[in-house]
Amino acid sequence: MTDDTAADKADERTDGSRRSGMASLANEDFSVIDAIGGPRGVIESMLPGVVFVVLFVATRDLQITVMVAAAIAVIQVAVRLVQRQSVLGALTGVLAVGICLVWAWFSHDARNYYLPGFLINSFWIIVLAVSLIARIPGIGVLVEFIRNPATDHFRQWLAAWRSDRQLLNAYMIVSGLWIGVFALRLGIQIPMYLTNHVGWLGTARLIMGVPLFALAIWVSWLVIATPLHRHRIEERRRDPQAERTD
């Protein structure tokens, strides 16, 4: 749920027991490092963007910049394949980078590398705002679906966590927090886009990608940790045999 796709990719770690991105909020043993994909995930997430902004500012050659950034993204996937590691997150990152690069290439404007990010942030502001109005907070839906996928009996599944007032309030607060994160990105980056400050725009995009995501998801966990833990205990008390994904 960020414009820095590798930051919010929800692929699992190689041991299959840890989730990254927003999905990490469903982990009973939360870790910010796991949430951002570990050191390697951070590098894979940020490297194409760093190369794009640095190379374009240095050369002002959009074609070379796009080709080099694209090559780096592809190499990252190839390295994972050679090492026989999970490539889902890397492929997701390549797809996102590819969309940005194609947009910049065909528009002949380096600024448009960042345009898909604006659209993604705007989309999530709308989705989360609507979910708050409906009092079905989007972050709550995400976390609860990961913990216990609603394959049937959707109304019962929804009521099971929405009836927990403390947990519902926590999810409402966190959903509002993420609206603020996405709005902050747009508020700072769009003026740079409109004034054609590509270098500053790229720098802001990097700072407000993984670093801001890490801060926001840590705060999110602080808000939901206690009510979610209590909710888990109550679930297990009511149904000790229940099998859950968390």
Rank of each mutant, 00 (worst) to 15 (best):
V79M: 07
A216S: 14
E235C: 10
K9F: 12
T14A: 14
G180R: 06
R60G: 07
W103L: 14
D152A: 08
S24D: 05
M172W: 05
L186R: 03
Q241L: 12
A69Y: 03
T245Y: 10
V77R: 05
Y171W: 07
V66Y: 01
L212T: 11
D8L: 06
F145A: 08
V143R: 00
D8C: 11
A96C: 02
H153C: 06
F182P: 06
A170H: 00
T226Y: 03
T92Q: 09
S17L: 12
V94M: 09
A23D: 01
W105L: 14
D8N: 10
R84Q: 12
I75V: 15
L47I: 12
V77S: 08
P227D: 07
N148E: 11
V87H: 09
W218C: 12
V97Y: 06
Q189H: 05
S220K: 03
M192Q: 12
F123N: 15
G180F: 03
V198W: 06
I188A: 11
M208P: 05
L215T: 14
D11E: 11
G37S: 05
S31Y: 00
N112M: 15
R84P: 07
V74N: 00
L47K: 04
R236F: 09
L212H: 04
Y114N: 12
R18P: 05
C100F: 00
A204N: 07
T59G: 04
V66Q: 04
W161S: 03
L119C: 14
H231P: 06
F123I: 15
G38M: 09
Q241F: 09
G209R: 01
M67T: 13
R185Q: 15
A69H: 03
N121L: 14
L91W: 05
W105G: 07
A214W: 02
L142T: 09
W178V: 11
D34T: 10
I43A: 12
L167F: 05
M1G: 08
V57G: 02
W103D: 13
T92H: 02
W124H: 15
A58P: 00
V198T: 15
M67N: 08
I146D: 07
T65E: 10
E144P: 01
L81D: 04
D246Y: 02
F118C: 13
W178M: 11
T59P: 02
M172T: 13
V68D: 06
P39D: 10
A10V: 09
R238W: 03
V87W: 08
D109R: 11
A7S: 14
S45M: 05
W103E: 11
A225T: 06
R155Y: 05
S175E: 07
D15G: 05
I99A: 09
V82S: 09
V219K: 04
V102I: 15
L194H: 08
I173R: 11
K9T: 10
P116C: 06
S220C: 08
E243T: 10
S220M: 10
